[in-house]
Nucleic acid binder design. Structure first.
Length: 671
DNA sequence: CGGCATACG
DNA sequence: CGTA
DNA sequence: GCCG
């Protein structure tokens, strides 16, 4: 019941696209009962403009004729009106004496000619509907026969595992308890230690996948070629009278019409699947739903499902680029990379808890996500995975093979089996994970690094912070800075076996920073810009990136030296430790390095797919390569610093040469 | 039903 | 295998 | 999981 609530949607969207509902309105039809537009004999264009006009006047539209108080259509006779209603599952008896416009008697439905609306829209003022009414009926129960409707997903009431033991965080591990780790299980995990690593049949991560499969696929048909948001005037879809179901259906239909009024973004209408070719802002309208998908994606990560990761990443990136709050799963299913599964998740999400106008929607949820958040397995694996130097495999080993459940377990039973960097990762677990880096601190760190580079290598060294900072995030997990120098000659010359002049430079710069006291640990120092540096002799292909086209990288732990103790804490430096990556690029690689290190991940993957498809090139942050010849594509990514080009300019030129076109870093937040 | 980004230690 |  |  109460199906005709206010449309619980704020059409105001952060970006562009004026909404008809926002237009200054002289004509105000908001007091009218819900209006249903009969699509019969109307073109889609006509229908659409009528909808827009009505919505612009604040009228309440519904796509459920059963809820309508007024039905408007190309109908001229009483009998026709009655039949149109009946054809849509609305049974009624004529009310003689009639009633007049405006009033909304319960259970009454009036069929009105279109002229009524067009006249109002032309005049800009309300018009008595009386003279246009062709039929007034009183709704009655249909003769028997009930139709099956959409099934509501069962809620709640699902496996409630005995969860309970909290492992209160464990805090940063400060103690280095020595312990033999040969007998992994002893004393730990009370028998849980036997669970299999590879195929834990009872694993919630596995079950979550199965659950998902069982759900009705809930597919929405999509058009070939140009894809439009499905229009409900399509007969097949219309056939079903969804009434007799409380709530949702009515809102669904009602909301649905709103979805049709929005300008379809190009990437949707053109079915454009490369996230590098469209804007993806940091804070998209559907960020809450996205965060739930990210949780599911993480579950896929933790269950070693690489393809699931790709699939969810694609969907997330697509939704993140969508400039409107999604209203229905049908609307969602028109986005590239979002089909049955994704839209069925949204269906569950949007119906999980009603959200009213003005409210945040973060009380909505998805069942499998709740299960994940409640499961010890998921939350513990996630925690282990958060240790720098611990990947999925190791996290699973900790959990399933060793039976560990907390950081304390790791320290107590496994410390000596950890690699050096893992030990560092554990030691600073909290600082790395909980304490994000404010932008101002990122900038300070960058200044110090650039200064160090200039000190050891001259004033022409320049740098640019990439990563999340460059994409506009207010807080960063780490600092990624790309350094370069405009003179090729600096990177030529001797090539020991170990890899290029760039490595020497990064060594000198890090040395300077260490000496100055900023670096507490060096996790890695050497070749590889992360996404590749060039190595020669791939096969026969000459090409040869020389070592002068090689990136170098340092991964550091950093700590601000200036410490102002709040008196009682003492003089020890308690500033949080920070993860800092320094990438050193010769000028020939500067553009690709910056583009490659700015991210986000899905943007990068799609960029590589696009460049491969469009040109047959291979992109990595050390250069652009022709796959056939193996040759480096000339000029791409070269920094013309000697000619006064800036680093950002260089990246811009590269993006254009790649056929991608310029995209602001702030618009590369593919989630 | 194959493909899904890429490279390095 | 881990990192990005 | 989605696409061609």
């Amino acid at each position: 019941m109460a199906s005709t609530t206010q449309i619980p949607i704020d059409l105001t969207t952060p970006s562009s696209s004026p909404s008809p509902a926002e237009a200054d309105r002289v004509l105000d039809l908001s007091h009218l009962p819900p209006i249903y537009l009969l699509p019969t004999r109307l073109s889609e264009v006509t229908l659409h403009s009528l909808e827009q006009g009505l919505l612009g006047a604040g009228a309440l539209l519904t796509y459920n004729p059963a809820e309508a108080g007024v039905v408007v259509g190309d109908v001229n006779t009483k009998r026709r009106g009655l039949l149109e209603l009946r054809g849509r599952g609305v049974w009624s008896e004529e009310v003689i004496g009639g009633v007049d416009g405006g009033g909304e008697e319960e259970g009454l439905v009036k069929v009105v000619r279109i002229k009524w609306i067009t006249e109002m829209l032309e005049k800009g003022e309300e018009v008595e509907m009386g003279r246009w009414v062709v039929y007034v009926g009183k709704k009655v129960a249909p003769p028997v026969v009930k139709e099956e409707g959409e099934k509501e997903e069962g809620e709640k009431e699902e496996g409630e595992k005995e969860e309970g033991d909290d492992h209160g965080e464990g805090g940063p591990a400060k103690k280095k308890v020595k312990r033999e780790i040969g007998e992994a299980g002893d004393g730990v995990g009370d028998g849980k230690a036997t669970a299999s690593l590879k195929s834990p049949g009872q694993s919630i991560l596995e079950r979550a996948k199965l659950d998902a499969q069982e759900q009705s696929p809930h597919r929405y048909h999509r058009g070939r070629g140009t894809r439009h948001i499905r229009h409900d005037s399509e007969p097949s879809r219309r056939a079903r009278p969804p009434l007799l179901h409380h709530t949702s259906t009515g809102e669904f239909e009602q909301i649905h019409i709103l979805a049709q009024l929005r300008t379809v973004p190009d990437y949707v209408s053109q079915n454009l699947k490369y996230s590098c070719l469209r804007d993806t802002p940091l804070k998209p309208p559907n960020s809450h739903f996205i965060s739930l998908l990210q949780t599911i994606r993480l579950a896929r990560t933790l269950s070693l499902d690489a393809i699931g990761i790709r699939a969810y990443s694609t969907a997330i990136a697509s939704i993140a680029a969508y400039p409107y709050p999604l209203l229905t799963s049908a609307e969602l299913s028109t986005l590239p990379g979002c089909d049955g599964k994704t839209s069925s998740l949204f269906h569950e999400y949007i119906h999980s808890t009603p959200t009213f106008a003005g409210e945040e929607d973060d009380n909505r949820t998805i069942h499998v996500v709740q299960e994940l958040e409640a499961s010890e397995e998921f939350t513990t694996l996630r925690m282990f995975y958060g240790i720098w130097g611990v990947g999925v495999h190791t996290a699973r080993e900790f959990y399933f093979k060793n039976g560990w459940r907390s950081l304390d377990d790791v320290v107590e039973f496994g410390w000596d089996s950890l690699s050096r960097v893992q030990q560092i990762g554990v030691k600073y677990y909290e600082e790395f994970n909980e304490h994000k880096i404010p932008r101002a601190e990122v900038e300070r760190i960058a200044d110090i690094i650039i200064s160090a580079a200039r000190k050891v290598g001259g004033e022409k060294w320049d740098g640019i912070v990439c990563g999340g900072y460059r994409r506009g995030k207010g807080q960063s997990g780490d600092v990624d800075i790309v350094l370069s120098h405009p003179e090729e000659s600096l990177f030529e010359g001797n090539v020991g076996g170990k890899g290029g002049v760039a490595v020497e430079w990064v060594g000198r710069i890090v040395g300077e920073l260490e000496t100055a006291g900023w670096v507490t640990h060096t996790l890695y120092l050497g070749r590889g810009g992360g996404f590749g540096s060039q190595r020669i002799d791939h096969t026969t292909t000459t090409t040869a990136a020389h070592d002068k086209d090689t990136l170098a990288k340092a991964m550091l732990v950093w700590q601000e030296q200036e410490y102002n103790p709040p008196a009682e804490l003492g003089e020890k430096n308690r500033n949080p430790h920070r993860r800092v990556d320094i990438i050193l690029a010769p000028p020939s690689c500067a553009g690709t390095a910056i583009l490659g290190w700015t991210g986000a991940t899905t943007f990068e993957r799609d960029l590589r797919r696009f460049v491969e498809k469009r040109w047959g090139w291979k992109f990595d942050s050390g250069g652009v390569w022709d796959r056939r010849t193996g040759e480096r594509v000339k000029g791409l990514g070269d920094w013309r610093g000697m000619e006064g080009e800036g680093l950002v300019e260089c990246e811009k030129r590269l993006l254009e040469e790649l056929g991608v076109g310029w995209r602001e870093p702030e618009m590369r937040n593919t989630g």
